[in-house]
């Protein structure tokens, strides 16, 4: 299962970003490989408008099942909810957030 993480950095010990759609990195964590399997610099970060929609669209079209990040804005939250993607809000380190998620979801 692929988890989308809104990262300030791209490593396991990086912080989760303070902003959802305007985060620095889209980090992918694979629950089978138990590691970060990829990252992408957020090219939409400095967009003038509709960034929340853009990033939520990116998430639903790139096969993610779960999102970990700060509270998303209303537009992102709405799209992710309609697409059936669960959001786990966390403000700590990526590693701790992933462990907390795995513990909660077996």
């Amino acid at each position: 299962m692929k988890i989308f993480i809104a990262g300030k950095g791209k490593e396991l010990n990086s912080q989760i970003d303070d902003r959802f759609a305007r985060c620095n990195y889209f980090v992918t964590y694979d629950t089978e490989k138990k590691d970060i399997t990829g990252f992408e610099e957020n090219q939409y970060k400095d967009g003038t408008g509709g960034v929340g929609v853009k990033v939520a669209n990116y998430i639903i079209n790139n096969g993610y099942s779960v999102v970990i990040g700060p509270e998303p804005g209303p537009n992102s939250a709405n799209i992710l909810k309609e697409a059936g993607i669960k959001i786990y809000v966390n403000h700590g380190h990526i590693q701790d957030a992933v462990e907390a998620f795995l513990k909660e979801n077996g």
Binding site: G47, V53, I60, N61
Partner: peptide
């Protein structure tokens, strides 16, 4: 097909194929 979503430079459209839903953000 998501052509409208990809063409919208104001990011006002979200096409959700897996749920067969379309979200339109009028204010954008």
């Amino acid at each position: 097909c998501r052509k409208c979503e990809e063409s919208c430079v104001y990011n006002a459209i979200s096409i959700i194929p897996q749920a067969k839903k379309i979200l339109f953000f009028e204010e954008l």
